[in-house]
Amino acid sequence: MKSSLKIFGFVIVVLAFYSYVGNTVPQKITYPPESADLSADMTPDELAIAGADIVAGKGTCLGCHTVGSRDSGLRFPDLGGIATKASTRIAGMSALEYLAHSLYEPNEFIVDGFLAGMPAINRPPIGLTDDEIKAVIAYLQSLGGTPSVTLATDVGYVTEVSAIAPAPSGGATLGAGLDGPGVFTTYLCNTCHSIDSPDPLVGPSLFDVGSRLSKAEIYEAVMEPDATLAEGFPGGVMLTTLNALGFYQKVSPEELRALVNYLADQQGN
């Protein structure tokens, strides 16, 4: 019996030791990736910053790629200055086209000295949404260049959503019950109308629109922009833009109501 107790004690000591070893290494919990908050009004620079988060997080790109590493013998191409390299990689392909191509069909053009093996980023398991991939492209453009991509840019690829794998929702999706400011930014109103300063951009400033127009007038101005034109601004621009964005198809009555209320609240100051 004595030897059994000794053995039991020994077992406990060894197991405790291995638990201790397991607890001395860096402790990190990995959570399932969360979708980034992307909105259509983001400038390319803002998109690039969001893209950097995706690259480091959900996209898991940095598991393989380095950015600006000078080590020799890398296993995967370094992404430092990728914007410069991308334009010269494949004849007849612009940097943007090449980057998009490399993300959607990564194994077609392999950089010399490296192995094929990168997964298509829009497919599971990584499964970035098209919008997130645009943010990634914007980030890549910022490495050695200037980002030019917005969510409205056509990169030449559209992912069909798979039926069984629940595609992670891409942040602020269109038509998903937005509030007033949400509608205002999602449909890019803020690229032409300033909302917090009286200086006009492409269109008139909406800084004090609530004090100038009634809700009814605002509603009309949104639904039929050319009906009443503010002086000094050309007609047709807003209607064309909103049609191109599919605003009239997508916006829900509640959203429209929220937008009008939001704009009516803009009293200046």
Binding site: V67, G68, R70, G80, G81, A83, T84, L143, G144, G145, T146
Partner: peptide, 10 residues
Amino acid sequence: RTIHPPPPAT
């Protein structure tokens, strides 16, 4: 901290 970051093209 990357000591020598890659430069922009322009």
